[in-house]
Design a protein around this nucleic acid. Structure first.
Lengths: 132, 132
DNA sequence: TACTTGTGATTACGCTTGTAATCGATTTGT
DNA sequence: ACAAATCGATTACAAGCGTAATCACAAGTA
């Protein structure tokens, strides 16, 4: 159920810096990306173009440069991606994933605390419905 | 850290039926896959070949047919995939993923129960000196 | 005005993927 | 023994991807 567009890994990186701060010119994006990846600016521009073509991002012309902005929302995208991974590998259940993390010692106290919080929020919301 | 091989989506489906029961001949695999996907048998054989080439699966010759078996383990693979997704989209933390699921009403009571179980197991294993 | 420079657009190219068809060897039916 | 059926191996081929280089045009500069 790929609601949004199909975005490649490299494209995702570009989108990601755009999500963090937008609108942004190609050069800003290139510069910010450069902190993590060493991509040629031509490469980044190709990726921007592809994202525009896929309508994952848009732009307005600011004189000579473009000001890019995301169209696809980060949360929608990450949600759909994680959903699809979890469906494919864990029959749609989240717990096996978490269990795997636990087993491989990739869970820290912070994670546990956050999970607890999510759980109690869920329970509260669930209870509210019943009380209603 | 892509520890194991790079396996494509289609290849994963093939591997998945093999993980469920192995060893298995190409025909068994094709037949079992056919329940979910309508792939041409030639297609499945191509995928089997690619998986062999990638050393994700192996085989022994049983007369005329091959008996395939997984080399990559399911858990190792799913672990590495989910790890990498969570790293890319959630800075390596699992809770935002779960939070997303909660927000989109994709968490059910069963999941919550399982999560609780994982949490208490984790807590037990990581016995903290300050047990309240 | 003519030239250089900076921008996005277009083109490039080898690799992987999805999706098969064909080939060559071997087994099996007659 | 010879033809037919059946395997895995090889080849095919378009689309997407990673990674750029080149093109065409507008804007600033001499």
């Amino acid at each position: 159920m790929q609601s949004s567009v199909d975005i490649s890994n490299a494209e995702f990186e570009v989108l990601d810096v755009l999500w963090k701060k937008h609108p942004a010119t190609a050069n800003e994006i290139i510069e910010r990306l450069n902190l993590k990846k060493q991509w040629h600016d031509k490469t980044v521009k190709t990726l921007l173009n592809r994202l525009v073509k896929k309508e994952a991002i848009g732009f307005e012309k600011e004189k000579r440069c473009y000001l890019y902005h995301p169209i696809v929302e980060r949360e929608a995208y990450t949600q759909s991606e994680s959903q699809s991974l979890i469906e494919r590998m864990f029959s749609g259940r989240v717990s096996p994933l978490i269990a795997g993390f636990a087993k491989h010692k990739n869970l820290e106290k912070d994670d546990i605390d956050e999970l607890k919080q999510i759980i109690s929020a869920w329970e509260q919301e669930n209870q509210e419905k019943e009380n209603d």
